[in-house]
Design a protein around this nucleic acid. Sequence first.
DNA 1: AAAGAGTACAACCGCCACCCT
DNA 2: CAGGGTGGCGGTTGTACTCTT
Length: 278
Amino acid sequence: MAGDTCHSKQKENKIKKGLWSPEEDEKLFNYINRFGVGSWTSVPLLAGLERCGKSCRLRWVNYLRPGLKRGSFSQQEQEIIIHLHQLIGNRWAQIATKLPGRTDNEIKNFWNSSLKKKLIKQGIDPNTHKPILVSNECNKSIIPSEMAVEWQDAFHMNNNGGLTLADNFMTSNLFLDESEMGIDPMVYDCNLFMQHQHINCEAPSPSFDFSDTLASRTMMDTFIKEESRESSSCTNYSNMNHLYAEICKYDEWNACEWQELQTVQASNVGDLDTYPMG
DNA sequence: AAAGAGTACAACCGCCACCCT
DNA sequence: CAGGGTGGCGGTTGTACTCTT
């Protein structure tokens, strides 16, 4: 295969594999620092490394590159990852561009080893970001019925027709993880709202008082705007609309909200000229 | 103290898109 | 246009470390 010259050469030659030694790191770091990245395939030869170019690139990008953050993900970073994953799925490289200092590999690992489990623990399907439901028309997934009752009970309608989290659920198992981590479960994640929404199999009412969702939209607005700007020169507004449509479909927003969002967006985005209507 | 299980993270593999000849 | 080279990406595996029994 064309893209696998690195791997085929590995078999032929003595190309080292496995973990990088500090000496190798030093060689690569010094070389890139001095000469920069030209062609990755020539880097190992010029830097005196018995590695393939691909391996050098990966090591540089994921570990040696200046500006990388080390250490655990902050709560804010976790939220961003969850939100972006909900929007665009396993596009780790795209997600990484919104988290300065983090690599796609790091985010992917964190998702697979930690966030995924956390969501499952909360009763959320990490693939769809929807609740793991009791058998009903919405979804055929099964969860213990008592858990579903717990989720349903966790919310009640307020006087304005808005959705409010029941006080007694502040200490329930549902929120235990977040409480333990010092996160206010009331403002943490709109997934709880989505759970309620799906359990009842109904579209969200426009009167729902759910500021967290608005925050999500703002984030999504920014994200998609940047995405459209960066993606290609032929990007136009219809692409953006398409993205929004996908996301709305994904989140099961109703048509009213979609219209409202477009109106708000049209009035807020000042540089519409940069997004010529298709 | 030792062995096994679990976890986190580094690295590899295969595929794809793009570029160049 | 075809084919090879290259870089980038996501899925998966390997390995080191930590925790539990």
